[in-house]
């Protein structure tokens, strides 16, 4: 049967990887896509590799959204788990889409939700640690904050339940 979603998307959707939350996360990224109504939270635990570089020791996600949103959430955690922060920041939405074997055109924006959540979580970690935030990441953060404000207006009601 042909489906609007690829086998890989459906597999991730059926059995999402790294689903859930991390109790005491080092970084949290909370993003929402106002247009689609999708919301994704991503949690990071940071460690160090043998070379002393910071790596993503653990990553988990929670997503309110459509099939593509859940699949891209799952995919990005696979792509960055155990990798350096530097590498994680280089993971593009195109890479996620490719990893999933493609997404319907109208769902491509879901992959941006995933990279945004990751970038926000890394930003959150760097800020908390008082570490230097790369200029590009700071710019991404500014854009997301602006967009999230719109999303929150829509998701206000849900927001009441968050804490």
């Amino acid at each position: 049967m042909t489906h609007i979603y690829t086998k890989k998307v459906l597999a991730h959707f059926k059995h999402p990887h790294n689903m859930g939350r991390i109790a005491k996360p080092d970084g949290v990224g909370r993003v929402g896509n106002p247009k689609c109504g999708d919301v994704m939270w991503l949690y990071l635990k940071i460690g160090k590799n043998k070379q002393g570089k910071e790596i993503i020791k653990d990553v988990k996600f929670e997503t309110f959204g459509c099939v593509a949103a859940i699949a891209t959430s799952s995919m990005i955690t696979d792509l960055v788990k155990g990798k350096t922060i530097e590498y994680a920041l280089g993971v593009t939405k195109e890479k996620i889409v490719k990893g999933l074997g493609g997404l319907p055109p109208i769902k491509i924006h879901c992959s941006l939700l995933a990279t945004d959540a990751l970038h926000e979580a890394i930003y959150n970690y760097l800020k908390k640690q008082g570490l230097r935030v790369p200029a590009q990441l700071a710019k991404t953060h500014e854009r997301i904050v602006k967009e999230t404000k719109v999303a929150e207006r829509i998701g206000e009601h849900l927001g009441e339940h968050l804490h």
Binding site: M19, R30, V39, T63, F64, E160, H161, L162
Partner: peptide, 10 residues
């Protein structure tokens, strides 16, 4: 709902 971040209240 297990996947959703909004499940806390529930």
């Amino acid at each position: 709902r297990e996947i959703s971040p909004f499940k806390r209240k529930y």
